[in-house]
Amino acid sequence: MSFQIVAEAKKIAKITLVGEVDSLSAREFQKEIEKLAAESPDELILFVENLSFISSAGLRVLIFAKQKMGTGLAIYIVKPQESVLETLEKTGLLHSVNVVDQYL
């Protein structure tokens, strides 16, 4: 029997957020998520090292992402600032995402 191999690479969506996500910028964030959702990624990586503020409207986009991209989607949040991390914690979002120091 001849050798067979099936390989499939994970589909990874990456977004970098810089500055402040309020209800206005959350709309742009949501549009990006909608675009990426069409590709049905397995992982969503958010680089947020330079994100200084995210309001509940921004956090709702994360919930939206999970609902839009499917429950199998893994969300990684890379290097959140302390205040951002705290908001994730207070809203109970922390146990639905993976907070990491770096994504390789």
Binding site: L59, T87, K90, T91, G92
Partner: peptide, 22 residues
């Protein structure tokens, strides 16, 4: 119960007013 629910099952609203008050 709301906050214990996994993300994919959560209603989108409700979170903001909680944040506000706290």
């Amino acid at each position: 119960e709301f906050f214990a629910r996994p993300l994919e099952e959560r209603p989108i609203g409700g979170m903001g007013i909680h944040l506000t008050i706290n």
